Amino acid sequence: MAASSSNNSAPVKHEVISTFDGRAVFTCSTCTAVLALQDEVISKSFSGREGRGYLVHSAVNVSLGKHEDRPLLTGVHTVCDVFCTGCDERVGWYYVKASDEGQKYKEGEWKYLLEKERLTKENGWS
Rank of each mutant, 00 (worst) to 15 (best):
E50F: 05
E115T: 06
R52M: 06
A10H: 14
S6K: 11
N7T: 10
H77T: 09
V82L: 01
E50Y: 04
E122I: 05
E107T: 09
G75K: 09
C80A: 08
E109W: 06
T30H: 13
K106M: 14
F46Y: 13
V91G: 00
H67D: 10
S58K: 14
V12E: 09
R23F: 05
V91K: 00
E109S: 08
P11A: 11
G86Q: 11
S43H: 05
T78K: 13
V12K: 10
Q103Y: 01
K121Q: 13
F26A: 05
V25A: 06
K104Q: 13
S18P: 14
D21W: 11
E50S: 09
P71W: 11
V34S: 02
R52A: 04
C31H: 15
I17N: 11
S5P: 15
E15Q: 14
W125E: 15
V82K: 00
C87M: 04
K97P: 00
E15H: 10
G102Q: 05
G75T: 03
T32Y: 10
H14G: 06
Y95F: 03
S43F: 05
K66Q: 08
V12R: 12
G53L: 01
A2I: 13
F46W: 09
E101H: 14
S4M: 12
V34L: 07
Q38M: 10
F46H: 05
G102W: 03
E68L: 07
K106A: 04
V62Q: 00
D39A: 06
K106V: 12
V41H: 10
D69Q: 06
Y112A: 00
Y105N: 08
Y112H: 14
T32K: 14
K121R: 07
V16D: 02
V41M: 03
C80D: 10
P71R: 11
G92H: 06
D39E: 06
D88T: 08
